[in-house]
């Protein structure tokens, strides 16, 4: 196990997993608390359009994905706030439009697109230095923003109307946070891929939510669970020689299952003890 650390690609993969756990843990808790999972799925898949166009133009695909996902995120936020288009329908349209644009431009690009699969399914072992610096910068911005503005974010998320009635800059916060969600998604596409990134944003959070009803704790637990699951996933995928992104998600689901089971057993034992203590009285 130790000799793996002598490989730079492996060390990079571990750093990527830790940074992904931080950004996804914090942003994902917000997504779960605000019931924005479908919106996040829409942003993720729309970004594929950006990847396709960037391929076609010979640009960095992550750059294309970033532009596309931030624009679609702001678009979705605008649609949901201003117009009377049904939000879920609008997201559905953007979702498939993004994928369609991506597929067409990848098809039009001459030659074979060699690592297109890595965008769909992730390839944490090919994460480079630049990716890591970008992920570190994003993690720093997100952690600072959520720590500094925690109360404001919590109060707006809980009751937007109340916040607006009290003149908080609700729209500004929503646009900033949705952009952070979009960038988190894009930078983590390298880690687990478009198809799986949504689970990095929801499964550790759902697991954390089993144990706490406090958003701050949910964020901290999600980061820790994300780190545990993604490190376990990387090791297991290495030894079994199976795709890392999928293995990480599998580890998350197993952790969720164990947590749920443990909680149910604890509740059942609690009920049993209560019945016993009642009998004794």
């Amino acid at each position: 196990m130790i000799e793996l650390f002598s490989y730079e690609f492996f060390r990079n993969a571990l750093w990527a997993a830790l940074l992904a756990s931080i950004t996804c843990g914090v942003v994902g808790s917000y997504i779960v608390a605000r019931r924005m999972v479908f919106i996040s799925g829409g942003i993720t898949h729309t970004s594929f359009g950006g990847i396709g166009i960037a391929y076609y133009l010979g640009l960095n695909p992550i750059l294309g994905a970033a532009v596309f996902s931030v624009l679609s995120a702001i678009g979705i936020e605008y649609i949901s706030g201003k117009t009377n288009v049904r939000e879920d329908s609008a997201i559905g349209i953007l979702w498939s439009l993004g994928m369609a644009v991506g597929i067409i431009f990848v098809f039009l690009t001459p030659g074979y697109a060699p690592n297109l699969m890595s965008y769909l399914f992730g390839s944490i072992l090919t994460v480079g230095r630049t990716d890591l610096w970008l992920m570190l910068a994003l993690a720093a911005v997100i952690v600072f923003f959520f720590v500094y503005y925690y109360n404001t974010i919590l109060f707006i998320a809980f009751d937007e109307e109340y916040a607006r009635a009290h003149r908080l800059p609700v729209a500004a916060f929503k646009y900033i946070i949705i952009s952070m969600i979009a960038l988190t998604i894009v930078l983590n596409i390298r880690v687990v891929g478009i198809i799986l990134v949504i689970s990095f944003l929801t499964i550790p959070q759902a697991t954390a939510n089993l144990f706490t009803q406090n958003l701050k704790k949910m964020m901290i637990y999600s980061v820790l669970l994300g780190m545990t699951g993604s490190l376990a996933g990387i090791y297991i995928s290495h030894y079994l020689d199976i795709p890392s992104g999928a293995t990480i998600i599998f580890a998350f689901v197993v952790m969720f299952g164990i947590a749920k089971l443990a909680l149910n057993l604890k509740i059942r034992r609690g009920i049993k003890q209560e019945i016993l203590s009642r009998k004794n009285h």
Binding site: A33, N151, L154, F155, F158
Partner: peptide, 20 residues
């Protein structure tokens, strides 16, 4: 929504506290 009773009551102060 994951928020406690105390936090809900404290959120009433947001008008005077402002963002951050």
């Amino acid at each position: 929504f994951p928020i406690t009773v105390t936090e809900v009551v404290l959120s009433g102060l947001m008008s005077e506290k402002g963002a951050g």
